[in-house]
């Protein structure tokens, strides 16, 4: 299987190409998984993705994979080190449980974008649907548009930066993740509260925006910070109504 992908890849000068109109997702992932640290084929293009699921999942090498179109569920899932660019929209769970690397969605992302991601950065040019950054564990997510309801639900660590608006119940049951929203927040979830922006927070926000290539494009002073009130960290019966 992998051999056929290689022959196609070798026929292209600039980037290795896998055409999903002729090859399978299994062939795509197999050839990407077979890459070693010394491999010089570091640039890949995936043609005709047609919103297939599980594209470029489980990558472990610092390669760049550009998906020329829409991606289905779990694109770049559990990514390590790789740079994955989705030219169109991404369906549920893009970059879920990412450990490191950089995933860039040029269109919109469906729900659970960056779910439980531990590291790396997820950049979404459009909007992200519900539960963006759910269970976030250390990654950075930057959304240039808006995010849907229950974003950063139970988010433990990492940063969610939203240049647009946030839906209902932002940061519900949040732990120690940092949330920055420039636009309107429809509502905060249980134990999520507005917090003051101090210099370390402005520096952090600036660093995240810079890493996303957005330094200077937006005014950091327009953002508000949200995080955990830490009232629900230990169960108390008088908080029962909040659960």
């Amino acid at each position: 299987m992998a051999a056929r992908a290689l022959s196609v890849a070798q026929a292209c000068d600039a980037a290795a190409v896998v055409d999903l109109a002729r090859q399978s997702v299994r062939e795509l992932n197999a050839v990407l998984h077979a890459l070693g640290p010394e491999d010089n084929r570091t640039q890949w293009r995936v043609l005709n993705p047609a919103a297939r699921h599980a594209l470029a999942v489980g990558l472990a090498q610092p390669v760049t994979v550009e998906i020329a179109g829409h991606a289905g569920y779990y694109c770049a899932g559990m990514n390590q080190h790789a740079r994955v660019i989705v030219g169109g929209n991404a369906s549920t769970g893009v970059a879920e449980n990412m450990m490191s690397g950089f995933v860039h969605v040029r269109g919109d992302a469906s729900q659970s974008a960056g779910a439980s991601a531990h590291g790396g950065m997820l950049l979404i040019d459009g909007n992200a649907a519900a539960r963006c950054g759910i269970s976030l564990k250390g990654a950075d997510i930057v959304v240039k548009g808006s995010v849907g309801h229950l974003s950063a639900f139970m988010a433990q660590a990492g940063t969610l930066v939203v240049l647009g608006d946030a839906g209902e119940s932002l940061g519900d049951s949040i732990y120690e993740a940092h949330l920055y929203v420039r636009g309107r927040v429809a509502g905060l979830g249980a134990d999520c509260v507005p917090k003051e922006m101090h210099e370390p927070h402005r520096a952090e926000l600036h660093a995240k925006l810079a890493a996303a290539g957005l330094a200077g494009e937006v005014d950091i002073g327009d953002f508000r910070r949200y995080g955990s009130a830490r009232r629900l960290y230990t169960f108390h019966v008088d908080n029962a109504a909040a659960y």
Partner: peptide, 27 residues
């Protein structure tokens, strides 16, 4: 710990989740 998975709901999603795990671990 949460009682629902963060990135799938129902049997149709589960099928895709299983496909992802198989792809990551090369079946």
């Amino acid at each position: 710990s949460a009682c629902r998975h963060p990135d799938w709901t129902g049997p149709d999603d589960l099928q895709i989740k299983i496909e992802e795990l198989r792809e990551i671990t090369d079946w």
